[in-house]
């Protein structure tokens, strides 16, 4: 589904990614963990062509994405739910979902409006509410629901648990697990490393622009250096 080879990205003169290679296979849910400033968001932004890469290959669904604009990548089914959710604050919940549908174009998807409402019933209850007045958790659900409307082949999620209570985080992660079980491919970036390793089957650890560890999530969760660096005492 996604193949990244030797990706280099410089951001404002700083080498944010220094040769990252990773792959995500169809149907997988893969975690990318690492501390603040490791380059996780830069990596996702490079995958969705929001930042330009210096060198390296990104092949999504069999096509190299070099030189494409961000909206073209989205329309091919690589949907990126950015950090901080970035909902369209002045527009209603329903309008946000309709804008999400633009990425679908003439493709088809199983993620219809009914499907999204079923996954997050609160979005249907608050259909006509201005999105900026939703709580953080509801905004995160809207950001995910909106991306689903675009017919994702691969969903990139940047810190979905950021600023959410443990209870709401559970709800969001349960929804992601459910989506993955239904066949959605997910690449999940999280600072909450324990949560991410529990939810995924495979994981990468990014440190200062380099992948330092990779393997089954369960194995990484048991690795002493990972526990010391990322999982807290």
């Amino acid at each position: 589904m996604l193949n990244v080879k030797d990706l280099h990205v410089s951001y404002k003169g700083i080498k944010a990614l220094r040769g990252v290679s990773l792959h995500v296979e169809e149907g997988e849910m893969v975690a990318l963990i690492g501390s603040n400033g490791a380059g996780k968001s830069t990596l996702l932004n490079a995958l969705s062509n929001m930042v330009r890469r210096k060198s390296g290959d990104i092949v999504f669904a069999g096509r190299e994405t070099r030189g494409q604009s961000a909206h073209t990548v989205a329309r091919q089914g690589l949907l990126h739910v950015p950090e901080g959710r970035q909902i369209l604050a002045d527009m209603s919940v329903y309008e946000n979902l309709l804008v999400g549908q633009i990425a679908l174009g003439s493709r088809t998807t199983r993620y219809t409006l009914e499907h999204v409402y079923e996954l997050f019933p609160v979005l249907e209850e608050r259909r006509d509410q201005i999105a900026g007045t939703l709580s953080g958790g509801q905004q995160q659900m809207l950001a995910i629901g909106r991306a689903l409307m675009g017919g994702p082949k691969l969903l990139l999620l940047d810190e979905p648990s950021l600023g959410l209570s443990p209870l709401i985080t559970d709800q969001v992660f349960n929804a992601l697990t459910k989506l993955n079980q239904e066949g959605l491919t997910v690449l999940l970036v999280e600072q909450n490393a324990l949560r991410a390793l529990e939810a995924t089957s495979r994981a990468y650890v990014l440190d200062r622009g380099l992948i330092t560890h990779e393997g089954p999530s369960a194995a990484l969760a048991g690795d002493q250096t990972i526990i010391d660096s990322y999982l807290g005492a």
């Binding site: 950015p82 970035q86 909902i87 604050a89 527009m91 990425a103 174009g105």
Partner: peptide, 16 residues
Amino acid sequence: RAVATNERAAALLGVN
């Protein structure tokens, strides 16, 4: 309106 509200988010959603 999506671009007016949040240009980056709009681009990520496939808006040209």
